[in-house]
C-alpha cells in the first residue's frame, strides 16, 4: 500500500516535470522543464491547489537518493580525459577555485545579511 502511494505520487511528480518540459518548449523559456516543474509544484502547494500530503512521501522517497541520479552524467567525464591532460589540467584548477569563490561569496553574503539586516540597510 505504502509502495503504491509512493509510486502514484512519483507519477504526479513526473507529470509536473512533463508540464514543465512542455512549457519550456512551447513558451520558449530559457529554463529547463525540471526547474519550471519545481516552480509549478511550489506554486500549487503555496496556493493550496494541491495538498502537501498527496505528494509528501513520494517526494521524500525520491529525494533520499538524490545524488544517484547524477551518476550517469558524472560517468560521462570518462569521454573527456584528453581535454584535461597537459595544459587542460588548469581548467580543473580554475573550475575548483572559481567554485570555492562562488560558495564563499554567496554563503558569506547571505549569512551576513541575515545577522544584521538593519546595519546593512543603513550602509
Amino acid at each position: 500500500m505504502k509502495f503504491l502511494v509512493i509510486f502514484i505520487q512519483f507519477l504526479v511528480l513526473y507529470g509536473f516535470y512533463l508540464a514543465g518540459e512542455w512549457m519550456s518548449e512551447f513558451l520558449n523559456l530559457p529554463l529547463p522543464g525540471s526547474v519550471i516543474g519545481f516552480l509549478l509544484l511550489f506554486a500549487a502547494l503555496a496556493l493550496k491547489i494541491y495538498p502537501l500530503r498527496w505528494i509528501e512521501s513520494g517526494a521524500q522517497f525520491l529525494l533520499m537518493f538524490l545524488s544517484l541520479y547524477f551518476i550517469p552524467a558524472t560517468v560521462g567525464v570518462m569521454n573527456y580525459g584528453d581535454v584535461f591532460t597537459g595544459k587542460g589540467i588548469w581548467l580543473i584548477a580554475i573550475g575548483v577555485f572559481s567554485t570555492l569563490l562562488t560558495m564563499a561569496v554567496s554563503g558569506y553574503l547571505s549569512q551576513r545579511t541575515v545577522q544584521s539586516p538593519r546595519e546593512r540597510e543603513v550602509e
Partner: peptide
C-alpha cells in the same frame, strides 16, 4: 527531472 521537482516539497 522529477527529483528536482520534488525539491519543492
Amino acid at each position: 527531472g522529477p527529483a528536482v521537482v520534488a525539491l519543492a516539497v
